[in-house]
Amino acid sequence: CRKQSLLLQIDLTRPLVHQGPFDVIVHKLSDVIVEAEQDSQSQQLLANFQVRSYVSAHPATVLLDPLPAMTRLLDRFASYRIMSELRESLRGECDRIPTNTFSFLFFPPHAVCKTRVAHGSLSHEMSLIFSGGGLEDIRPPCVLQSFVNHGAVLHKVFVVGDRHFCVERPSLKNFPSGACDRKTIFFNSHEVSKPESNSDLTAVSNHTASRAPPSSEAVAALVGELRVQLGMALFGVDLIISIHTHTLTVIDINIFPGYEGVPQFFSSLLSHIESVLDQRQAGGGPSAATTGL
């Protein structure tokens, strides 16, 4: 694309209308959207992008991914409602894909506390709570997610259009159900689950580790349903497998993840863009609101 002068980096300090026209716009504005709630500079950058007015004037332009779909996933409450609906959609087809339990007041033996906002630097700051007294350590608005012992293994599914890739990462180690006297553990999910992570929180003995990969059929069914529900093409799903029930559990949906460990990412992205443009040229291409379908 660069050799043929087909690729242009958008300058967010200038109105979008003066930089096009574009066939496809690939963007990751999630952090800008979050920061725009409190930062005037981010508000201006978002205003300059003018996606809605630009797309209205250029309906053939494809947006990867639609802003309304991305904005919905910035709120973990909305994200978890999607997971709940997902479980019902997959019931019967794939009963081994539950979603974890989320609410304001629910408190299982152990719980992970996350910020309500799903993106930005603070969204990676989490805590593991072992008792009701630990609730005094949390700072709302936040969500509580029941903790499932999963052998310190996180399965990250990266989606690029109709392709997906599953990568194994480190995760929190197992904690016994009787550990109610432990103090709240604060951690950063990036530091725990990066490929190069080496933390005491991820250390697990050989006899408790569960390294079995998730069922390829279950992951394919999950990704297919999520693409329909989200209307997005570039997203990730975090999965864990219970060491006790061997059940696959969805714990997060990520907007335009880093795709670390996916060597085919750029070729897959280009392939998806070509597919979208071919559909558009054939007269059956998706609109900006349904790009991920």
Rank of each mutant, 00 (worst) to 15 (best):
L222I: 05
C166H: 02
D11H: 08
R52T: 09
P170C: 08
L222P: 14
H110G: 01
Q229D: 01
N198H: 13
L6I: 05
A203P: 02
A60W: 12
I82P: 01
E217M: 08
L86S: 04
R139C: 12
H150R: 07
L135V: 12
Y259A: 02
K183P: 02
D181Q: 12
D65P: 03
S127E: 09
F102R: 01
H27E: 08
E191V: 07
V262G: 02
S197R: 07
G292H: 04
T247R: 12
N100K: 06
P109K: 13
N48Q: 12
S215P: 05
V157E: 01
S127W: 11
S189V: 07
L105N: 07
M232P: 02
L154P: 01
P286N: 05
H246S: 09
L293N: 06
F165N: 03
E88L: 13
I25D: 01
T291R: 03
S84K: 12
H207L: 10
L135I: 11
S215N: 05
A282W: 11
V34W: 01
L46Y: 13
T184H: 07
T245E: 11
L45M: 13
A233W: 01
P257S: 06
Q9W: 08
T71K: 14
F49G: 00
V17E: 14
D11C: 14
L270Q: 05
Q50Y: 10
V223F: 05
H110Y: 09
K194S: 15
H246M: 07
L6T: 07
V51Q: 09
M70W: 00
L12D: 09
L74Q: 01
E125A: 07
V157R: 03
I97G: 06
R14T: 10
F235Q: 05
L270H: 03
D200E: 12
P66K: 03
V237Y: 07
H18G: 01
N254W: 00
I138G: 03
T99A: 13
L230T: 01
S123Q: 06
K183I: 04
L172E: 04
I129R: 04
D162Q: 13
P176W: 10
F165E: 11
A289G: 04
Q279T: 03
G161Y: 02
P140V: 10
S205K: 11
P66I: 10
V112S: 01
L234K: 01
T290A: 14
E274P: 00
